[in-house]
Amino acid sequence: MARKSNQPEKKLLVIEDLRVSVEEKEILHHVDLEINPGETHALFGPNGSGKTTLLMAAMGFPSYHITGGRILFRGEDITYLPLDQRANLGIGLSFQRPPTIKGVKMRQMLEICGKGEKDPESMAQSLDFEEFLDRDLNDGFSGGEIKRSELLQLMAQDPDFFLLDEPESGVDLESIALIGKVIEGLLQRETITHEGKSRKELKRERRKSGLIITHTGYILDYLDADIGHVLMDGELACSGNPREILKTIKERGYDECVRCCVNR
């Protein structure tokens, strides 16, 4: 999609005609996606449709081979930029199944993520995670603890663009509220402000953006995503109001999305 030359920095993320292969097999075919600063997008799709692949490719994991198209971040072509450089540009990802790193403490990881500028203690408090600070990273963590650990690391990293892979999966109902609230905060989507600003003002000032994979949609109860997309067989099948899409999927399944798509 062509950008107007007088607004070169308007888009935060632009994905153009992206094709991605994993182990010689093409998973994503011709994906186009644009995300503006301050926007949060929800990504739906059945298992195996390529949702995680899209996030991993956007983050730059080397085993996700980009075979066509390009990715722009704030107008800069990052298609072949290494992982760490993308992280330092302001892209952060929460892992579904992060590895355990023995001997590296949660506290140390938060110092790494926050470049030593954030206080692990106070951050951990907000996620009720203080008692994990001196544990080895992800060692023996439950599903819900992994989610909290990942969000805590992102909190320290403070990226401008969040790639969240099913932040609510494997989390008990009580913790979903906590996680939802933290994500809302990270994406600057709180609806209550202490500075007496209107919602409109808040929205205008919002800088943080996100792309969130959600199966259940529970997370949408805690933050209003601006746009929803459905990924089917490696292609974005449709985009629109995330709540409507979720409602359709819940009532009629992904087949209806396909049909809707075909008839488009």
Partner: peptide, 19 residues
Amino acid sequence: YLMARGLSEEEATSTIVRG
């Protein structure tokens, strides 16, 4: 994993070895 948090490959390796 560590590179996704902003460490270079060398930094990530040394962090893992230290751990």
